[in-house]
Amino acid sequence: MKAGFVRDLLGRSDYAIIGEIVEPKTKVLDLGCGEGELLEWLAANKGVDARGVEISGAKVQKAIARGVSVFQCDIDEGLADYPDQAFDYVILSQTLQETRHPRTVLREMLRVGRRAIVAFPNFGHWQVRLSMLLSGRAPRTKLFPYEWFESPNIHFLTVHDFEALAALESLVVERRYFLAGHRKVDWQPNLTAEVAVFLVRRG
């Protein structure tokens, strides 16, 4: 992949990547969709049939008020009702590290969707490693700004960790993008990427 700059989408570079990946006129489910900004954009600009799941009632209210079909529920439990292969894409943006059972969530995503788009903060980034090495405490960086006891992140994974899980699940990685700020990076992404975006499907 060529290095280069990524234009923001709704203030986020991972959204720009996701906006690039999703084909027009497809069916999309966004897990942990927040206030539905990405879904609204995808519906308006790609004509997708957009659905979302979000645990926070306040965020669900805002998403529905935007006209996006979102229902309030926990991602860890929320996919069981869907029929198999109901969606073209299931998106999990910056949330995998917050789920209780990430492997189950990934499996469920690929049961209800033909493809999964997973974006997550890379715990292998050099600043994280340096922070822990120098301070001897749970790392705090721009990407992981929380005190350990306040962090919503309950699993910490790196680019290599996700690749390993994909291999364990025999997934095909169709595309991978590594981002540092607004820059795409390709040299040593496990050290240099702040955020990774993977497009995967079952083999």
Binding site: D49, R51, G57, V60, Q61, V68, F71, Y82, P83
Partner: peptide
Amino acid sequence: RSRNRDVAYVELE
């Protein structure tokens, strides 16, 4: 949802 219908749901506090 099991019939993949377009449904939005919220429990208001």
